[in-house]
Design a protein around this nucleic acid. Structure first.
Lengths: 245, 245
DNA sequence: CAACAATGTTGCATGATACGCAACTCGATT
DNA sequence: AATCGAGTTGCGTATCATGCAACATTGTTG
């Protein structure tokens, strides 16, 4: 492990977590190094465009360079190419925003989406990391890909599953029924449905699903919406060479 | 400048430029270091999620962490929030995809877009870096923000401006008329129109424009489309507090 | 307005770490 | 089975990252 490089990356991680711009002294405290060391690390990151210094406040924020790298990452995901028409189709038939996520960094990383034309919509942007235990996409990834070693059951709404045993039983059910639901467990007023996406090796590599306001994604029309999500997930899995369906 | 950190960032830059995955030996040659040094740098980047190693081929690619950072950068751009409704409006009235770009890394960095429902469309993804001398957005940024110290006039089509003096005269005209056109200068069959976006300090901070197939964005309907782009740019500038319009 | 405090930058000596070398592992090739 | 190339690991050493001090800049206080 190269300590100086690790410190630079920790700076980027801190900036990703931060609410606003950060000054040298705060970086020095966070990294437990002298302020002169922190200053040199930030200068290096800035010269490559990974951070920017506000000339007025002298504080730092993430730089635009990562936007370019991210575009490259997303453009090199064959799964995204294959999945995009299925996301559009899923949004067309359900009228809700659809999303595609993979397990990454201990969370559900949204890598694509398709927006509904509806004015009232539930949309999660590409690049978002969502918790696994209380989102539909997340629970699918937990059930079918595996549970990361550290899983914190942070409560988000009164409906969030809060203990490990209840979650375990619930994930058994998700595996049996082949889909997951987020019934206002992550965000009040929002309900989601998701199903697993298999690759040619019959392994689950992603989850696909829809999100909508609870007033539209009601418990009454859930069976129909569920069927549409599962059908799309199976179609996409077939497209990826999975012989399971 | 911290050498180890700089090397790590150069690795990320190399991976951004690369066509495919890269092995340790190639990194070592590129950085002019021993293969064991390259290996340790890559291990550090991998442990923070900035690169991934393919377990089968042992070669590396950019990791998903940058997707999260990028999302954060884009979400913290007030300009994007303000501009999005204007992009939608511009697409609605013109029927073409609209884009928003800023000057970054010596190029035009696309930070937002709005897609036309048309099946035939010209769309540039967020995170794309486009050349300045032969795109409409790029020429607006050159004319109104400034010319970077190094500007390479790479030819892309027979219509690309190839010498500095012709470009200089052309940019004078762009400044006078208040908009720029890409008349199949970057991609054959594609025509674009862009105009500058001013902030409250009366400085140009971005360019906004539309792109379409040359068969639809014809020289005949250019005057109307041009007016719609300029009007939207002025509306957005006014929204950002510019007193110029 | 002067004094003070906090933040940030730069020069420099020093020792901790990054580096290169050698040895090893592993998979592909002959 | 032997060889080769790529990648990893152990280790000694030299280079560079680090902290300290001094300085510069900006904001705050009396």
């Amino acid at each position: 492990m190269i300590q100086s490089l690790a410190r630079g990356l920790e700076i980027l991680d801190l900036l990703e977590q931060a609410e606003g711009d950060i000054g040298i002294m705060e970086f020095a405290r966070y990294l437990d190094v002298d302020k002169s060391s922190a200053s040199r690390l930030l200068q290096t990151l800035a010269s490559y465009g990974y951070v920017e210094q506000n000339p007025d406040t002298r504080r730092f924020r993430l730089g635009p360079r990562v936007v370019v790298l991210s575009n490259r990452v997303l453009n090199r995901m064959p799964l995204r190419d294959h999945a995009h028409p299925f996301l559009r189709q899923l949004t067309d038939v359900t009228g809700e925003c659809s999303h595609l996520a993979i397990l990454s960094q201990g969370k559900a990383l949204y890598i694509d989406q398709y927006q509904t034309p509806s004015i009232l919509r539930v949309e999660t942007e590409i690049g978002t990391l969502s918790p696994l235990h209380c989102t539909a996409l997340g629970k699918v990834l937990l059930a079918f890909v595996g549970v990361p070693s550290e899983l914190t059951l942070t409560p988000y709404t009164p409906r969030t599953i809060g203990d490990a045993e209840t979650l375990r039983v619930h994930l058994d059910q998700v595996r049996r029924q082949g889909f997951a639901i987020d019934d206002e467990e992550h965000v009040a007023g929002v309900r989601c449905i998701a199903a697993p996406v298999y690759n040619f090796g019959k392994k689950v590599i992603a989850a696909i699903g829809i999100s909508g306001p609870a007033g539209r994604v009601t418990l009454d029309n859930l069976p129909l919406l569920k069927q549409q999500v599962i059908a799309t997930a199976e179609d996409l899995s077939r497209r990826l060479g999975s012989g399971l369906f």
